[in-house]
Each structure stands twice: as C-alpha cells, then as structure tokens.
C-alpha cells in the first residue's frame, strides 16, 4: 500500500474518498462556526438572514459586536494575563528542569523524571480539584492559627495560574529538553577554555542555542493556557477567563456573538500556530 506498489483503481478512489471525508469531518464544525458569525439574526442557525458585520462591530442592542461587549473584552484580558503568567513561569521552570535532567546524574533521577511526566496523565479536572483542596486547607490552617484570611488562596486568578502551570510545565520541560539534548557540549567547553566562567558560557552559548525551543514553548504554553477549560473550571473565581465566560453564555443560549468571538479566536490561534511552525522550520 505504497505508491510504488500497484493497487486497483477502485481501491485508490475509495481510499482517497475516505481521506477526503475525514478532512471534511475536521473542517465542518469550524467552518460552520465561522460562517454563522456573519448571520444577521439572533441565532447562529438557519435560516440565513443575510450578511452582517454587526456581531463584530455593532454598537446597539440587540446586536452588540465583540469589540463593544465589555464582558467578553474583559475576559479576553483576563485570559491573556493568565496565559502570559503561565507561559513565563512554565518556561523558566521548564528550562531549569531541562538542565537538571540533561546535565546531572543523581540518585532518584529516573524516579523524578517519571514524576515530572505524571501531570500529563492526570485528568485536568483532578489536577484542578487537588489544587483547590490543598489551597483551601492552607487558607483554613492560616485562619485557625492567626485569624488572617488569605484571599489569594481562595478560587481566583492565582489558583487558575498555578493549576495550569502545574501541567503545562511538563510540556515546556519536554520541548526544551529535546533541544538541549542536541546541544554539542564541546562548544560550552570551548568557551570555558577561552576564559569564560560557567555562567557566562551558558548565557552566551547555550541559552542562545536553546532560544528557538524556549520561544516555541512560550507560544505552546500560551495557547494551552488560553484554551484550557477543565482545570480552570474548578479554580475560577469571580473574574472568568474567556473559555469560562463563553461556556456560561453558551449554557444560556447562544447568539452569533459567540461565533464572532470563536472566529477571532480561531484566527488568532492559527496565526500563532502558523508562525510557530514557520519559525521552527527556519530554526
């Protein structure tokens, strides 16, 4: 079943048809979401009432567009803030982890490595509740001891950030480790021979080599955080990130406003993803 092996014509057509159907299946839901963002009606469904930009730019009820809808805009801001924090934190820890596992031999290394992988096989919702439970145990403990109520340990942005960080760090570690493994240690030794101290050698030789992987990890972490739902759902407080805000609206019934937000999300994340892919191809 490779091109060099002759196959019957009907088999090839059947196979090609199956693959085409598969891609139709992939594209269908997203296309539908995108198209109905332009429907001039209160509902993202048939009948088609004509084309409109109102769900993006509309200023008056009943068609308030994305760019004038404060609730949505605020939640985009919240999501971006959370995603930025998570991306920076997870790439920092991911980098130190990569150096640790790549450069040192120590007792318990294999065990720690498996432990490091675990967050990937824990369901997101369980990660969420475990962080929720522990932080409230801490908060209650502090209250019992000193009568101080630490708001930061109650559901809210800090917990959302920590919850997402707890598993995105694993991915950042894997991405950065993969690149560090390809690094030629003799380059660093050459820098040391030329009189650089260890820190300078790492800063001027190793880190620039790692930069593409670190930037890649930042983008991946940002996207994963922005789109995370399960962990966030359990830890969210009063200011909801975008996915949660959209979920709440979707439960109440949807208007094409949600389609417009979704379309912008799609454009944004595919742009980021494409940039990442092109960037990595070059690097």
């Amino acid at each position: 079943m490779i091109p060099t092996i002759p196959q019957s014509r009907s088999f090839r057509i059947l196979y090609g048809g199956y693959v085409a159907l598969f891609f139709l299946y992939l594209a269908l839901p997203l296309t539908v979401v995108a198209v109905f963002a332009f429907n001039d009606s209160q509902f993202p469904s048939l009948p088609w009432e004509g084309f409109t930009w109102n769900w993006f730019f509309g200023e008056e009820r009943p068609q308030i567009g994305v760019f004038h809808e404060r609730g949505i805009l605020r939640s985009v801001g919240t999501s971006a803030f959370v995603a930025l924090c998570v991306a920076i934190m997870s790439v920092c820890v991911g980098t130190t982890n990569a150096f640790l596992f790549n450069r040192y031999e120590f007792r318990g290394k294999g065990f720690l490595y498996v432990l490091m992988l675990l967050p990937l096989v824990i369901p997101g919702i369980v990660l969420g509740i475990s962080v929720l439970v522990f932080s409230s145990t801490l908060a209650n403990g502090v209250w019992d001891m000193a009568q101080i109520d630490i708001q930061a340990l109650r559901p809210g942005l800090l917990l959302v950030i920590l919850g997402q960080f707890s598993f995105i760090t694993t991915i950042a570690t894997l991405v950065i480790s993969a690149r560090l493994q390809k690094f030629d240690r003799t380059l660093e030794e050459a820098a040391l021979n030329l009189g650089a101290d260890r820190l300078t050698a790492v800063r001027t030789i190793t880190l620039p080599f790692l930069a593409p992987a670190m930037i890649g990890a930042v983008v991946v972490a940002f996207l994963m955080s922005f789109e995370n739902f399960n962990t966030t759902l359990m830890l969210v407080g009063s200011d909801a990130p975008l996915t949660i805000a959209m979920f709440d609206r979707l439960k109440e019934g949807s208007t094409p406003l949600l389609n417009a937000v979704s379309l912008l999300l799609m454009l944004g994340s595919s742009l980021l993803a494409l940039m990442l892919i092109l960037f990595q191809k070059r690097g």
Binding site: T31, V32, V33, F226, F247, L250, S254, S262, S270
Partner: peptide, 16 residues
C-alpha cells in the same frame, strides 16, 4: 490547525 482552536469552539460547532 483545528486543534489549536479551543475545545469550546469545536463543541459549539457541533451544536450548531
């Protein structure tokens, strides 16, 4: 590419 889009959006597509 579809998977860089939020799961919420994909589910919403199926609902429509």
């Amino acid at each position: 590419i579809p998977f860089y889009v939020s799961e919420l959006v994909r589910t919403f597509g199926w609902m429509i």
